[in-house]
């Protein structure tokens, strides 16, 4: 690479590099701009948002929107519920995924290939919306937290990613050595394999956690008790379906909400709902690429 710097660029190469730079800048700005606009609106005065004055930076900086968000009962409730589903759900996911991926990573397990087939087949075919609903109903899981925690306990794709990691990154000699020492399989898993698999566990944890935090479909299908609603379901009501109109929200917030506050509140809500996932992202960013790659190698 150092050598390449010394090579003088030809005219056509210069044009090419400039074009690529312009293209990437354009792409970056297209992604960035809506984000900035949303954040700026969330910090702006309601009147400015309504009249469309917020183009780049906040107009008349204010925290009104955020104060309104945190005074809205259903948002707080949704936040608490989502936090619970995310933590409990991810723990279940991790436990189930590990105890599934490890045995299947062992090529010496009799029947390994066939059991694997059983799992992968479900990636390309399934019962679909109604049979799934009827199952949850028959199991008496409708309107319980279990409906959001158990049916998705293993994401087969993530399980395969983890399995592939076990197969490719844990040296086989370790297993032989431990077997000679009389170490059992479960002990080997917990004391040798898992400590060596921190990076993949981090990746899969984040995949699952983001999935739980962002999910709305199963809650939408299986829950009718508002006390169990995750944040995304309340967000849907407030942001998308106009079920919750301005007057109702204003009631929720305070009796004399300022004019247009509900618009700013929507922007603030978007920010509040998204920030928790963005905060954890940098911590696992470098592992992430690895996780995507392991999944890809297997295909």
């Amino acid at each position: 690479m150092k050598k390449a710097k010394k090579v003088r660029l030809s005219f056509s190469d210069k044009v090419f590099y400039s074009a690529v730079t312009v293209f990437l800048t354009f792409m970056g700005l297209i992604v960035l701009y809506p984000l900035i606009n949303v954040v700026s609106c969330s910090f702006s005065k309601p009147e400015a948002v309504i009249s469309g004055d917020v183009i780049l930076l906040p107009v008349e900086f204010t925290l009104e929107g955020y104060m309104a968000v945190f005074r809205t009962n259903r948002v707080l409730l949704g936040f608490r519920n989502s936090a619970f589903y995310t933590v409990a759900g991810t723990l279940i996911n991790l436990f189930m995924t590990i105890i599934c991926a490890y045995p299947l990573s062992r090529r010496d397990l009799p029947g390994q290939g066939r059991i694997m087939m059983l799992f992968t087949f479900t990636m390309i075919f399934g019962g679909g919306m109604i049979p799934n609903y009827l199952l949850i109903k028959d199991l008496h899981m409708l309107n319980t937290v279990w409906a959001l925690l158990i049916p998705g306990a293993i994401a087969v794709y993530h399980m395969i990613v983890m399995k592939t990691f076990f197969q490719s990154s844990i040296p086989g000699e370790l297993l032989e050595a431990s077997q000679i020492d009389g170490c059992t399989d479960i002990k080997y898993l917990t004391e040798v394999v898992l400590p060596l698999s921190k990076s993949i566990i981090a990746v899969v944890t984040l995949y699952y956690a983001v999935g739980h935090w962002n999910a709305y479909f199963s809650a939408f299908m299986y829950l009718s008790d508002q006390n169990l609603y995750p944040l995304q379901l309340f967000l849907r009501e407030i942001l998308i379906s106009s079920k919750v109109d301005a007057a109702m929200l204003a009631d929720d917030i305070s009796n004399k909400a300022s004019y247009g506050l509900e618009y700013v509140l929507k922007y603030s809500l978007i920010v509040v709902a998204t920030v928790p996932m963005l905060i954890i992202y940098p911590f696992v960013q470098k592992h992430f690429v690895k996780g995507v790659m392991i999944g890809a190698v297997k295909g």
Partner: peptide
């Protein structure tokens, strides 16, 4: 022991993936 580990995931797989297929 490996089968023991697999037991729970297999039960889960049958109930939540294959029973809905039967539901078709």
């Amino acid at each position: 022991q490996l089968y023991l580990l697999l037991l729970l995931p297999l039960v889960w797989l049958i109930i939540f993936k294959y029973v809905p297929m039967a539901g078709l």
